[in-house]
């Protein structure tokens, strides 16, 4: 069996007159952590959403573990999504369910696990992301942003997906809460969880990524290991983008 989990080929997408994806191609191997960076509005979020078909691409090809996802899904769309974990910028925890039930619901309704088995697996996932027992029965509105995002990560990993897509998982968080979420994602990376992560956190990317891709105006303009990207960017645009992030981070650090 091939160790390529996700294959995206020449993917295009327009919204009206605006072309957001202009022929994006890449693969993610099993156990690999890929980080997608680039200026806002560059199509990164749309790219993630086309992969699990929340947004339908215009053309191109998507394969998940050798199974065609687009253009002709080889299985029901919900069965495909079941195998792709998704972590949202705005967490999107189910508002009417407790932290524990947020993690259980997919296991019960989608995976059809018996309730006790679902609870066991949900608790395992919550412990993995450091959500302690006193928070299990709280509703999302009673949790901090960092806690909510960690529950959302637990919800994704409990499903044991083939790959997890993360859409700027720390961008909606207050600065002091970013660390606790990044720590969890770094831990997932250490455990060789296959992930494709959109983020602006350069330090995190340098630390955790096997490969960084820079996306701008709908195309991947640069890709390489963190070292290659940082020390030897091929494009002027990439260099400026990285400098900008570094400057911002310096400012933040001096503030701290």
């Amino acid at each position: 069996m091939s160790d390529i989990v996700l294959r995206v080929e020449d993917l295009w997408k327009s919204f009206g007159k605006q072309t957001v994806l202009r022929g994006v191609t890449f693969t993610v191997k099993r156990g690999e952590v890929k980080v997608l960076m680039g200026p806002s509005g560059g199509g990164k979020s749309t790219l993630l959403r086309t992969i699990n078909l929340l947004v339908r691409p215009d053309r191109g090809r998507i394969e998940l573990e050798g199974i065609e996802v687009f253009p002709r899904p080889a299985m029901k769309i919900n069965k495909i999504r079941e195998r792709i974990g998704f972590v949202f910028q705005q967490f999107n925890l189910f508002m009417h369910l407790t932290a524990l039930d947020n993690v259980r619901i997919g296991l019960i309704k989608v995976k059809k696990l018996p309730p006790e088995e679902a609870t066991r697996r949900a608790i395992e996932a919550l412990q993995m992301v450091g959500i302690t027992e006193d928070l299990w029965h709280k509703y999302p509105a009673q949790l901090s942003g960092g806690q909510q995002q960690r529950v959302a990560i637990a919800r994704a990993i409990a499903m044991k997906p083939s790959i997890i897509l993360m859409d700027e998982p720390t961008s909606a968080l207050d600065p002091e809460l970013v660390g606790e979420v990044l720590k969890v994602i770094e831990e997932l990376a250490r455990r060789r969880t296959t992930m494709l992560i959109v983020t602006h956190e350069l330090d995190f990317a340098l630390e955790a990524a096997d490969e960084i891709m820079i996306m701008d105006q709908g195309v991947i303009v640069e890709r390489g290991t963190p070292d290659e990207i940082l020390r030897n960017p091929k494009h002027e645009r990439t260099r400026r983008f990285i400098e900008r992030i570094l400057r911002r981070q310096e400012r933040l650090n001096t503030l701290k």
Binding site: N78, K79, E82, F88, F94, H96, V110, M159
Partner: peptide, 22 residues
């Protein structure tokens, strides 16, 4: 909020499962 939809579908729920349970 539309994020509730997206999250439900992303978990692998069908349209009617998402309507019923979320």
């Amino acid at each position: 909020p539309s994020g509730q939809w997206e999250a439900a579908l992303s978990l692998g729920m069908t349209k009617w499962q998402a309507i019923r349970s979320i």
